Computed example of a mutant assay.
Amino acid sequence: MIVVMKVGSPEAEITRLSKEFEEEGLSPEKIVGKHKVVIGLVGETASLDERQIQEFSPWIEKVLRVERPYKRASLEFRHGEPSEVWIDTPNGKVPFGQNHPVVIVAGPCSVENEEMIVETAKRVKAAGAQFLRGGAYKPRTSPYAFQGHGESALGLLAAAREASGLGIITEVMDTADVAKVGAVADVLQIGARNMHNFSLLKKVGAQDKPVLLKRGMSATIDEWLMAAEYILAAGNPNVILCERGIRTFERSYARNTLDLAVIPVLRELTHLPLMIDPSHGTGRSEYVPAMAKAAIAAGTDALMIEVHPNPAKALSDGPQSLTPDRFDRLVKEELSIIGKAVERWSEPAVALV
């Protein structure tokens, strides 16, 4: 349930109402929009009468019920206004959201050694990326596949951050590792295989670092948003959704089916920012540029693209990784054109020669 306040409502009245809602056993959350303040009410609201709440104050404009099972994640909860996630990096704050330029995240699937991760960080930064992705801990289908270097790789990510000025996004797989990963990462990633790890969702929801929540391989949109709700309900409002391809009957030509239809669908359902991962979504480096361009045209807020200095020798996901040279051309000569056209680019488009 949300309570929409009238324009110009006194702060003292909003505070008074919030205390009154708390006395009713509800958890009020103040949401400040461009023109109005909304008070979101979380708790047992089924028995509450909207007309009765309307009489709590002459400053209440209207009272609306949130019909969807995901309350905090729903667009209704913010009265139709998209949220923003601002992330601190060595080069300043970077915003994720519908009213900001597309954010580029790039880097290898796994952190292999210091030379590789630092070199890659510098190259993707020069091309226009604001964040470095790289796995310290890697969930793999086979127990015999490379699982990442673990805690030692976190130090290498820190070195790459120092050398490049990029923000760091890396996956956390276990509740026991949240603190140590959070000490290095600027954004904690929940991978597709852990989307339904509710203990982990609650744990990252109880800490302050922003969370990137990847869609599960076979998850419906509602299941994905309910996973986000776990993080939001635990107290962390800074959640970014990441579509990385889903498993369908088509397995011959692409690793997954990249569901770009989620972009317009989620715009109607949630206020949370959205990232698209065309690398995992296709599994083929030759398909990544087309899907990245399509994602910007469709309205994504961010892209995550795998880049490796030598994909043929990558310890994981080499076939879907771009070389630094190809990534540079993609960002400067292709993505910038489309980003500029849809007014979501921070740099002028580069003309193709």
Rank of each mutant, 00 (worst) to 15 (best):
G25E: 07
R51K: 14
M173C: 08
G155N: 11
A176N: 14
R78D: 05
V3P: 01
F249L: 14
P95Y: 15
H271W: 14
E250A: 13
A206V: 03
D301I: 15
I60H: 02
I276H: 04
M291A: 11
V288C: 07
E24W: 10
V265Y: 12
F327Y: 14
R123V: 02
I231M: 06
L156C: 11
G165E: 04
N256K: 08
V3A: 07
T248C: 12
M304L: 15
A298Y: 10
D49C: 12
A179W: 14
E223K: 02
K30Q: 14
V42C: 09
T170W: 06
I246H: 02
V7N: 08
L274A: 13
I168N: 02
L154H: 03
F198H: 15
T89Q: 13
V172S: 01
G167I: 04
D259F: 15
G92I: 15
G80C: 12
Y253S: 08
Q130M: 13
G182T: 06
R251N: 10
I39K: 00
E81V: 14
A351C: 06
E334H: 04
A295I: 06
A206I: 03
V4H: 10
R255I: 01
E250I: 11
A227K: 01
S47T: 11
G107N: 02
L41V: 03
P58S: 03
K293H: 03
R161M: 05
I169R: 02
S252E: 13
V63N: 01
C242T: 09
V32F: 14
H280V: 03
F56H: 00
P82I: 11
P108H: 01
V342H: 13
N310Q: 13
K36R: 14
Y137I: 04
T45G: 10
R344L: 12
